[in-house]
Design a protein around this nucleic acid. Structure first.
Length: 949
DNA sequence: AGATCCACTTAGCAGGGTCATC
DNA sequence: GATGACCCTGCTAAGTGGATCT
């Protein structure tokens, strides 16, 4: 058997997981030769990032406790999933409900989204620090350790400063205490970053602003139409200017560190690699020169932070509607042959505009999956739509709704009032109590004010938004209380809008657009401790919007008196319109919805790629295991990271800019995100992961790993301190490049898809009882789904009314139990009577009671089940995996095989999205079977089957 | 080669709609 | 029919990863 097989043994000795991977791999055999000695490696890429980060991180703390709790939270579930077993098991076991609740709360906070960060804009840096005081505590130990390590003077001092700042911060912020603030704290410390950093940030910021300004100028010239003032708020110079200091240049000279730590226990097996540099002679090979040195220690300066800001889309002018696509529009073959369209399609000729057709009238299903996929890289030949629907214009408040400043009524100009309204609506949210949120808001709000207003309004705490708030609350109430007729009218209006703007004609087929509405203005609310929370998202005008459609289509008309920023015909992309959002400078797109061919085909392709991975996953695993022993640090880092991605389904972990929340993925893990325990809770070589991932969702997991991995991790952490990258010689480009060499089309995220789908299939095989009733099968399905959600760490906040509804359910259970007991007693008595020569009638009574008792018991069982299910699902979100990671053909096949109606598994929207799978998968479909080549013919080999819909 | 841009996928949440229960 | 729990959908933020620029 291959090593892999051994691999698949769950850590901790639990039963093997079927998929050999997922979570628990344990020791492997091969570990023997580990590299024993280590030494320090100080290399590091010095990313500025680190620097920033360092600052923030912090402190020590009670992490453990938190973790424990979190653990619980994570775990909850899964009894069923064997895969995740380790993880799950541990978790689930402990948790008693109350624990869970606690955790939950905590975690909720942790996740937090609420976080306001308390730092000024400028400090975009990651707030990392802030964080969870609890955790940090634990970390102290590590920290100290790290600190002790030697580093170059410079670095040291720099770091120290940071630390100091951090600590200060922490103290200050933590004092406030509340758990809730935990997150905040985390982030908040950034304020204390070193001046240097701040300066840099400022500088950067300033430049960005400048660039933006320029662009805006340019744009302005182009666009003549008048815009609302909101629109130009951006053009105004920032009110509060930040002074910018010169950025000190750090020296790059090598800080050489001579580290001579004692070698670690294990006898050197692999040569010098692990030997302290100072002991080594020298090597010439590639990385060798300080292969083991954290890169950060080698160079330390990274170029100035990138001025990321995306420059806006090319500017040009244009007046004519179409601009030449910059991208090579490869042959725009206009063969608008309304191809394929087996069923639908407007009959030949020029496609008609979507609006002409009415909404949902039974569109025949376009079975695009039965057609050949085009391979020219173009996404369409003909594309026609009505353009996006702009946000409704602002309507002024009635005169009796007044704003007060410092106790005095103040008339606000339209724009000022509008923005005040954004804030007023949120006034009850916790985040309006956050410093960062408020300061960002005030700054942006002042930018839209008239100079007079700006003179007066300088302090948010003197602003009284209560009347505005009450007005919006009332408006909501009114909306809820609308009569049936009003509701109906509104619904119709809405449908009319969808009919007009919600569809497009693509190559002769009418397809739904996913998001045809332009995002309305409002206050930006990032997730986690986002440095930009509270900033004003400006109103998007037609002059900001680029339209993409075919030249020969009916070009969408901009609203009266306006014009589009540009109209282009780029068939290499799928978007119909786009604009650049002002807060983060990102491009937003209008695209087709999930049930469209364009999205569906891509989705299908994604699963085929994952299936292709199955064919070579064993050899890839074998390879990365060998690579754990490589002489080159970069190879070992790559191998360990890949192992995590494979085993734990971690995300790739691209680098992030400083002005985003501080979250990480695999490649961007930092030393403080993992702690190593040779022994923990009876398990060996335990790695504890604790970090904020996408959307600032906490990832906490204790995993027993193979010894070689463990030893490698010790080396990777050596001579680094908080803030340094764990994998300092790795990033997602390097990793993906490597993966692509192993298999065409392979990237880090394919592993997530692969392991998720495989887990589902295996869990279904394991959990499905063919003889159980449909309701029980659904539960089994949900459990399999849940195993995946746990694997992927898909969490959600507990429903607001969770406790209440749980309590209700519990009461029902108790009542039922009482009933059962009561009935049992009665039953016993009747039995006695019946047995001791009771009459016929008494015998019948007994039989009846007996039946009633059985029924009650069943009901009780069902209730208990649903309570369990509910509890397990408290903080687990099943939808994300179902929609994005699970090959729908697995579910479809399962439904077909066990006669479960597909509606029980997929709701209407989901059925539309997965129509291709529902149509093509048979009961025999096997995710781990032979992948299909979808550019050829879709249903090759998979056979068809009864249709569900 | 690294930075940045660009397109597109993945993500959780809010709030309204719908369904179940009384 | 009222009420409340839950589901669904829309919204939009936040990831990934290839392409392009410098």
């Amino acid at each position: 058997m291959s090593e892999m097989e051994e691999l698949s043994m769950p850590e901790g000795g639990e039963t093997a997981i079927s998929n050999g991977m997922s979570n628990g791999i344990s020791n492997g055999t091969s570990e023997h030769r580990e590299h024993k000695e280590h030494k320090h490696k100080h290399k590091d890429r010095d990313r500025e990032k680190d620097r920033h980060r360092d600052k923030d991180r912090h402190k020590t703390s009670h992490k453990d406790k938190d973790r424990e709790k979190d653990k619980d939270r994570h775990s909850s579930s899964h009894k069923s999933s064997h895969k995740d077993k380790d993880r799950d098991k541990e978790r689930s076991k402990d948790k008693d409900q109350s624990e869970r609740h606690k955790d939950k709360e905590k975690s909720d906070k942790d996740r937090h989204r609420d976080k306001d960060k308390e730092r000024s804009d400028k400090d975009k840096h990651r707030d990392k620090d802030r964080e969870r005081s609890d955790k940090e505590k634990h970390r102290d130990k590590d920290k100290h350790r790290d600190k002790d390590r030697e580093r170059s003077d410079k670095e040291k001092s720099r770091d120290k400063d940071k630390e100091r700042h951090r600590d200060e911060k922490k103290h200050s912020s933590s004092s406030s205490g509340e758990k809730k603030d935990r997150d905040k704290d985390r982030h908040s410390s950034s304020t204390h970053k070193s001046h240097r950093d701040k300066d840099k940030e400022r500088e950067r910021h300033r430049e960005k602003e400048k660039n933006r300004e320029k662009e805006r100028e340019r744009e302005k010239i182009k666009v003549e139409t008048e815009e609302t003032s909101l629109r130009d708020f951006y053009e105004q110079p920032p009110m509060e200017d930040v002074t910018v200091k010169e950025e000190p240049v750090e020296s790059e000279e090598e800080d050489k560190l001579v580290i001579s730590e004692p070698m670690k226990d294990e006898p050197p097996e692999e040569d010098e690699e692990e030997m302290p540099l100072s002991h080594r002679k020298h090597r010439n090979e590639e990385n060798d020169d300080d292969d083991d040195k954290p890169l950060a220690m080698r160079k330390k300066i990274k170029t100035e932070p990138k001025e990321k800001k995306r420059k806006k889309i090319k500017e040009e002018d244009d007046d004519d509607d179409f601009k030449p696509e910059k991208k090579k529009i490869k042959k725009e073959k206009k063969e608008k042959k309304m191809k394929g369209a087996r069923m639908t399609a407007p009959p030949g000729g020029a496609p008609e505009s979507p609006t002409k057709k009415t909404k949902k009238e039974e569109e025949p299903v376009w079975k695009w999956w039965e057609e050949n996929k085009r391979d020219d890289g173009l996404k369409w030949t003909f594309l026609e739509h009505k353009g996006p629907l702009m946000a409704p214009a602002y309507v002024r408040l009635p005169s009796n709704v007044r704003f007060f400043y410092d106790g005095k009524h103040m008339e606000l100009s339209e724009e000022t009032e509008e923005v005040a309204g954004f804030y007023a609506r949120m006034i009850e949210h916790e985040y309006t109590t956050k410093k960062v949120f408020n300061s960002n808001f005030l700054k942006d709000w002042r930018r839209v004010m008239t100079s007079k207003e700006r003179e007066i309004i300088t302090d948010l705490s003197k602003c009284d938004f209560r009347q505005l708030h009450a007005f919006y609350v009332q408006q909501n109430e009114d909306r809820k209380n609308r009569t049936k007729e009003e509701k109906k009218a509104l619904k119709e209006q809405n449908e009319a809008l969808i009919a007009e703007y919600g569809w497009c004609n693509i190559d002769g087929h009418k397809q739904r657009i996913g998001n045809f509405k332009i995002e309305p203005p409002g206050l930006f609310r990032g997730r986690g401790e986002h440095p930009k929370q509270g900033m004003l998202k400006k109103r998007i005008m037609p002059e900001d919007v680029i339209i993409n459609c075919s030249k020969d289509s009916v070009i969408p008309k901009p609203p009266e008196g306006h014009r589009w920023k540009e109209v282009r015909a780029d068939p290499t992309v799928t978007w119909l319109a786009c604009w650049v959002e002002n807060v983060q400078g990102q491009t937003k797109y209008v695209m087709l919805n999930a049930a469209s061919k364009l999205k569906g085909e891509k989705d299908w392709q994604k699963y085929e790629t994952a299936r292709k991975l199955h064919k070579c996953v064993d050899s890839i695993r074998e390879q990365y295991r060998l690579d754990w022993k490589s002489k080159e640090m970069r190879i070992r880092q790559r191998a360990v990271a890949l192992y995590f991605i494979d085993k734990l389904a971690l995300r790739a972990g691209n680098e992030k800019d400083e002005d985003q929340a501080d979250t990480v993925g695999c490649c961007s893990l930092r030393v403080e995100h993992i702690t190593l325990h040779e022994q923990k809770d009876g398990k060996e070589y335990v790695v504890v992961f604790d970090f904020l991932g996408k959307d600032s969702i906490r990832y906490y997991n204790e995993v027993s790993v193979e010894k070689k991995v463990f030893k490698n991790l010790q080396l990777f952490k050596e001579n680094k301190e908080e803030g340094n990258d764990l994998f300092d010689r790795l990033n997602t480009q390097i990793l993906n490049k490597h993966l692509n060499e192993l298999m065409d089309g392979l990237t880090a995220k394919v592993f997530r898809t692969y392991n998720a789908s495989r887990t589902l299939q295996e869990q279904l095989e394991l959990l499905t009882d063919p003889d159980a009733p449909v309701s029980a099968k659904i539960l089994q399905y949900n459990r399999a789904n849940r195993a995946v959600a746990v694997l992927c760490n898909h969490q959600r906040a507990a429903p607001k009314s969770f406790d209440k509804s749980m309590a209700n359910l519990q009461k029902k259970i108790n009542d039922k139990r009482d009933q059962v007991e009561e009935t049992e007693r009665e039953c016993k008595q009747l039995k006695k009577i019946a047995k001791s020569g009771g009459s016929q009638k008494e015998k019948i009574n007994y039989e009846k009671k007996k039946k009633a008792l059985e029924r009650l018991k069943e009901q009780l069982e069902k209730l208990e089940h649903s309570a369990t299910d509910k509890e397990e699902n408290k903080t687990i979100a099943l939808g994300t995996s179902k929609l994005n990671y699970l090959d729908p053909r697995i579910s479809v096949a399962w439904c077909k095989k066990f006669n479960v109606p597909i509606e029980k598994v997929y709701n209407k929207t989901q059925r539309q999205k997965f129509q291709w799978a529902i149509d093509m998968a048979t009961a025999e479909y096997n995710f781990l079977g032979e992948p299909m080549n979808i550019t050829k013919n879709s249903s090759d080999g998979e056979g068809e089957d009864e249709d569900y819909e």
